[in-house]
């Protein structure tokens, strides 16, 4: 029967020998990976040119499940690792795939500096509003009043509005979607591949096990329904106005799409200007094995 010949189109992008994955039922991380794989299919990008770098966390485990050159680094340091990878081999398309805590708390300094330098990285930030891997503690993204294991009476700290942060720091492409917006997310990832420079895609994603449950917000499916109901697509929305609350509206869309020379172009231009003929392109000699 023909039905037996077909396989899931994302299969070639996954380490199927490592399935099933560790993520909980109703966790949104797998959905984001699904969209990522579909963006790869659609963009027809050469898979050999891709490298994916993760930090530590539930989202950090993405690196272990994609069939790409993949690096599961240390907590918060995916971006600087990716920076070294990209600078040593500029031909690589380097994706950073990590959690909100990893990228904006312990790794927050690297996030803003990579955006400032405009390093050509595609950052996919799965924002489940919490530190999930360690059991549901407060993150810099946790909305006000939310209960977490380290804010048992509710979070009082103001949260980071990530699109606003990375736009201010210099990112050339900034979008936000939820795991409900699968087609839009896949399209955004595809668009980021077309950009040269620091691109940042935030994906709001359920963590039913630790965030939703503790805040009596239901399970993964309830959260997806909330995303469907309360999301408003506003392309080009001023990022200062897209902050999140626990149960309010979620502004999604492509917020920033601009051009600015990326780090390697700037470096090249500076060296050519200052050194002229005596400048030797790094890519000509960098490989250490011949």
């Amino acid at each position: 029967m023909t039905i037996l010949d077909v396989t899931n189109p994302v299969e070639p992008f996954l380490r199927t020998d490592r399935m099933p994955h560790i993520w909980c039922p109703g966790c949104g991380i797998g959905t984001t990976v699904n969209c990522f794989a579909r963006a790869l299919i659609e963009s027809k990008i050469d898979l050999q040119s891709l490298a994916l770098v993760s930090g530590i966390g539930c989202t950090g485990r993405v690196a272990g499940y994609v069939k790409l050159d993949s690096f599961h680094t240390t907590h918060g340091r995916a971006i600087p690792f990716a920076t070294g990878l990209k600078l040593a081999n500029p031909k690589l398309n380097v994706i950073v795939y990590s959690g909100d805590g990893d990228l904006s708390a312990i790794g927050g300094n690297h996030l803003i500096h990579a955006a400032r330098r405009n390093i050509d990285l595609k950052v996919i930030c799965v924002n489940n509003l919490i530190y999930a891997m360690t059991g549901g503690q407060t993150a810099p993204t946790t909305p006000g009043h939310a209960i977490t294991s380290t804010s048992p009476y509710g979070t009082c700290e103001p949260a980071f509005n990530l699109p606003h942060l990375v736009e201010a720091a210099g990112a050339v492409y900034v979008a936000r979607w939820t795991t409900f917006h699968v087609k839009q997310l896949a399209r955004s990832i595809g668009e980021a591949f077309q950009k040269k420079g620091f691109s940042f895609i935030e994906v709001i994603s359920p963590c039913p096990t630790l965030y939703q449950r503790r805040n009596k917000l239901g399970d993964g499916l309830d959260t997806m329904k909330y995303y469907k109901e309360k999301s408003k697509v506003k392309h080009g929305a001023p990022t200062s106005e897209v902050g999140l609350t626990m149960t309010g509206e979620i502004i999604v869309g492509k917020f920033v799409d601009r051009d600015r020379p990326d780090y390697q172009s700037l470096l090249h231009a500076q060296m050519v200007e200052s050194l002229g003929e005596s400048y030797v392109e790094p890519s000509e000699t960098v490989c250490s094995c011949s």
């Binding site: 023909t2 039905i3 077909v6 899931n8 189109p9 994302v10 299969e11 996954l14 399935m19 099933p20 994955h21 993520w23 109703g26 966790c27 949104g28 991380i29 797998g30 959905t31 990976v33 699904n34 969209c35 579909r38 795991t179 699968v182 087609k183 896949a186 993964g220 997806m224």
Partner: peptide
């Protein structure tokens, strides 16, 4: 869409090529 939503890579939909000319081009999801 089911395929894109599935967090566990457990399902997907596809338009199948059909054996008989007469059959409609759009067929059941596998």
């Amino acid at each position: 869409l089911c395929g894109m939503y599935c967090p566990d890579f457990a399902i997907y939909g596809q338009r199948l090529p059909v054996a008989k000319e007469a059959a409609p081009a759009r067929t059941a999801a596998a």
